[in-house]
């Protein structure tokens, strides 16, 4: 089989799979990884998925450029939490989502994703406060970052390494052609990335 044929077949197979991780699956297979390591399962329930979508756009909302949801960040988060995180990290993240839903229901009778904007803001600020303290209530240092720290890292990394984040929010420079270390920032108005 030629390399090109192999690539085409893999791409088609990945499309048929239709899983959240299929794009990365294709790349990993192309990279020659052992496909047994790539068996995927659904990461989030519908409710969790809805919360993650809301949270993504709360961290990086649409402005004059698309936000994290439109950039596909929730799928990135599902893939990282499901297949990249270690168990202890996954537990902290999923517990964070549960806590948001529980608190939202206490105060607004609805899941976090369905809550009003003001309540969602308030709940996420509370999570940010929790993350500032390096110890838990009993004074024990945390080995795994708090939920808010995880969330912010995931959204930020996912967004600024996405096609939308790199090409629309920032200035994507994959093939500059020359070097100018004295370039007027006003000509581009944002940071270059590659």
């Amino acid at each position: 089989m030629s390399d090109q044929t192999r690539r085409d077949l893999l791409r088609r197979a990945a499309l048929l799979c239709g899983s959240v991780a299929s794009a990365s699956l294709t790349t990993r297979l192309l990279a020659g990884e052992d496909p047994r390591a790539l068996v995927t399962t659904a990461t989030f329930t519908e409710r969790q998925q809805a919360a993650v979508s809301r949270l993504s756009d709360m961290v990086i909302p649409p402005t004059d450029t698309p936000g994290a949801l439109a950039a596909g960040v929730p799928d990135f988060i599902a893939s990282v939490v499901g297949h990249w995180y270690e168990a202890a990290e996954r537990k902290v993240f999923l517990e964070g989502l549960e806590r948001l839903d529980a608190r939202s229901r206490e105060r607004g009778l609805q899941d976090f994703a369905a809550a009003g904007e003001a309540l969602r803001e308030e709940l996420l600020r509370e999570e940010e406060q929790l993350a500032i303290s390096p110890t838990d209530a009993s004074g024990v240092a945390q080995s795994v970052p708090r939920f808010f720290t995880q969330l912010k890292e995931l959204v930020v990394f996912g967004y600024y390494t996405s096609e939308v984040g790199m090409k629309q929010e920032l200035a994507y420079l994959p093939m500059p052609g020359y070097y100018d270390g004295d370039y007027d920032l006003s000509k581009v108005g944002r940071q270059f990335v590659h």
């Binding site: 990365s24 790349t27 192309l30 990279a31 893939s79 990249w84 996912g158 096609e163 790199m166 994959p174």
Partner: peptide
Amino acid sequence: KTEHMPPWEQPFHGKPPRA
């Protein structure tokens, strides 16, 4: 095979598999 490959085409956008 990774020359000029943008991060969004890499598994986990290039995050290192720590284990």
